[in-house]
Design a protein around this nucleic acid. Structure first.
Lengths: 348, 348
DNA sequence: TTGAAAGCGCTACCAA
DNA sequence: TTGGTAGCGCTTTCAA
């Protein structure tokens, strides 16, 4: 069923039917109702390509995911983000186009998305410290919102980020409040902006209590199970091993747990672990289990906000960039049910 | 840069330029080269919407993900599948459109995808025993490939599936070979086809050794950490607790591990665990750690195969349905590096 | 308040 | 081997 068939069946012109369906004010109310009913009955939906050709907009948003490093796709976090963004797209009638491409074909992917006209804008994932994608997108004039930040990027741009610095600062303080003084940090690659900020928060917290950061207790690498295991194992073998770990991701945290077990220690009794990007944490000294809900709920919220922001930019590209910093929620108590929806919840 | 501008700059007609770019044989070789160079220099790419309007094909594939139950998006497996499919799409110039929709809006999503004309075909994820989506897609004539199988579906259809029955059969046998007789099965919901097949393989293996399946050692639920924990905890409290677990997913396996620890037992010493959809397993009696690579590599492979198959169907919808059963690889030895690419590797 | 008609950028048919 | 041209299905002036 297309516009012509629909308008013919109604004895109206395509123009009028199109106007009625798109909410133009000049259509008589009676006509509009008649058209709407006929369209619903015929299960009519305008062809997206034809409409796109006519309007110059594609009603689709692109997400380019670098896959060679396995940073993103393997990361459950990404799923949450996508789920949040999808909610918004679904509401607004937008499609989500995902290009999973090898790192070296990333630029090509963005250019293709633009020149093929398949999307009206993109979300940039996992920005690095000075991310070339931002310059590229500005240059080619494709609207974009960054999930995360690119610290050394000189110009203004739209971003939505979780406050990784404060999250790790608070988590470190929390552990210190429990008496821990030697806290191992199993972090992601410092080239990733979020990892650098986490490192910063951790160090700040230590300094605020007059504790010097011990390099042997800081590890940065890809956030894999194997890396988490190796790093934790090595730290536990130190003359003065850590009594607690701060894990950057659920994946590496599983490696940390394995290292603790392998070392003959008992998780939550001999060694405490707080994991970020996770719903579970293990502490030996707390009556209950504190949980960073940042990534099971805040990341989903971040997806919603990014999508919403991008669609606003697409509608009006002239507006000034907006920066949106979300506070991660560190709650006490194991969370087993659905993650809370708010993002402003603070640690007690 | 569009076709008209490009052809004008070359002093050729749009027709000739289009033909040259699309590999039609009647174009003079000299012309083709000249056109190709100009196109590359201008960074020209045909507008996907215009081309789609003209050809009737959208050069895009849809993936509809049900999100309300958190079956898929939360599942790291899904990421691997997408990564595999993406490789194929990228090669063939196809876009991947992902609709994450609440269960109840699933049918609407498929219909919209078709009538809006945004995709040429879809991949169906996580089929149930008699999945209504198959009938729907057949009815509306949208080409599709199912990742998994729908057991009670009467008609033929294209599917690509991992042999879940044999995987669980082999894993159960493996545990029995090590001397285990009480093996807990922490499974997904039986309404999900893959879970039913896993259950079947488990029971078959027990029967082949003359062991009756013990209902108290079989648990089915959503594959969450909390469910895995609760189920394992309960089983470990039985008068005759299991000495090994078979976990259906990496997520629930983490719950199983926690239950073991909580019960004062040591994983790999007191209780063994084999996890599916995972790269890690913990056995007390094996010299090394056996690993089901099914989901970190085979699932990616399945993504590739599904995508390839779908694009073949789109090109020629008349061809008979193909059924593709992948054997899951159960390997011995911890896998820490990149997952192997093949899918036919068998357990020793 | 409604309709006719001109595109949007491309492909594909029919001529030359 | 090349070009003219008629759509593909929709939106959007411009007229009526």
């Amino acid at each position: 069923m297309n516009l012509k068939e629909l308008s013919d069946s109604l004895g109206l012109s395509q123009t009028t039917v199109s106007r009625a369906l798109n909410g133009y004010p000049e259509v008589a109310e009676a006509t509009r109702i008649r058209v709407a009913q006929a369209a619903a009955a015929a299960n009519y939906r305008p062809n997206a390509r034809a409409r796109g050709l006519a309007t110059g907009r594609s009603m689709a948003v692109g997400h380019v995911i670098p896959i060679s490093t396995h940073h993103e796709m393997v990361n459950p976090i990404f799923s949450d983000f996508i789920a949040g963004a999808s909610e918004v797209y679904l509401d607004r009638g937008y499609d989500m186009v995902i290009s999973a491409v090898p790192d070296e074909r990333e630029e090509e992917a963005y250019r293709a998305l633009l020149s093929k006209g398949s999307v009206d804008g993109v979300i940039v994932h996992a920005p690095r410290s000075l991310d070339p994608r931002i310059a590229l997108l500005r240059e080619i004039g494709l609207p974009f919102v960054v999930h995360g930040r690119s610290t050394n990027e000189p110009g203004p741009y739209n971003w939505v980020d979780v406050n990784n610095r404060s999250a790790f600062l608070r988590a470190t303080e929390f552990l210190m409040d429990l008496g821990h003084r030697r806290i191992g940090l199993i972090n992601g690659l410092l080239a990733m902006d979020f990892a650098a900020r986490r490192h910063q928060g951790y160090v700040e917290a230590l300094h605020s209590r007059g504790i010097a950061a011990d390099e042997t207790l800081i590890h940065t690498s890809e956030m894999t199970e194997a890396q988490g295991y190796a790093a934790a194992k090595q730290m536990l073998a130190l003359p003065a091993p850590p009594t607690a770990f701060l894990g950057a991701s659920i994946i590496s945290a599983f490696g940390i747990r394995r290292a603790i077990e392998d070392s003959g220690l008992v998780l939550g009794r001999d060694v405490s672990v707080i994991t970020f990007d996770d719903d579970l944490s293990y502490l030996r000294d707390a009556s209950d289990v504190p949980t960073f809900t940042a990534t099971r709920s805040s990341v989903r919220e971040a997806g919603r906000i990014c999508a919403d922001r991008l669609m606003s930019i697409i509608a009006d590209p002239a507006q000034p960039p907006v920066e949106h910093l979300l506070e991660a929620a560190l709650t006490v108590g194991r969370s087993t049910g659905p993650a809370p929806r708010g993002t402003t919840q603070q640690m007690g």
